[in-house]
Design a protein around this nucleic acid. Sequence first.
DNA 1: ATCCCGAGGG
DNA 2: CCCTCTGGAT
Length: 236
Amino acid sequence: MKTPAAAQRILDTLERDYPDADTELHYENPYQLLVATILSAQATDAGVNQVTPELFRRYPDARALARADREKLEALIHSTGFFRQKAKSLLGMAAALVERHAGAVPADMAALTALPGVGRKTANVVLGHALGVPGLPVDRHVLRVANRIGLAASDDPEEVEQQLCERLPPSRWTRCSDVLILHGRRICKPTPDCAHCSITKDCAYYHSARRDSPAPRTARGRSAKKAAQRPSQRRP
DNA sequence: ATCCCGAGGG
DNA sequence: CCCTCTGGAT
């Protein structure tokens, strides 16, 4: 695994590659970012951006959201996926904000993750982008990219968060997450586009010959099990 | 067909 | 640890 100095050098390069890193995350207040982040699970930015204006017009704060009609809320956020539990999360979260925090968003990891629908990743997003508290959100992109380039070595998001935080000053935590996410989305995808990557020189994954494999992708692992229990039409 | 800017529940 | 929930992108 990389030393802190090497890690920071790699981050320097990536930050230059992605100057637009957290453009999508500038909402008017922590409440809006919290709501948008909950909606963003398994959804596209475009999908979230499509519903948030109307959402924030109807429910401008936690008090309004707590009083929302469940079915209207579900209909409004339907296109972002997982709409039933997202609606449930939003209603429960808004109620908890009103009851426990006078309608404000607490700048505290424990208080945030105690809210319904808010996990560590969401909490770190809100802390880092809206509350001025250093936080390093670890999603699947961060997990994958950090492991490939040796910034971390674990499949556990919380461990990866810790390993990254140990190598960087708190002032860089949030931006580290942002650029790793963008790199993971644009270049270092599950099947990576190494030809357009600026840090292959420092990447163990690139040098491991697993890159650029033609991706034969036959059924294996968990997929094999699913395929077995569903013997759908096979072409002879 | 498969994967995902997650979190809760069993 | 495993499953589920949903739409959209690839």
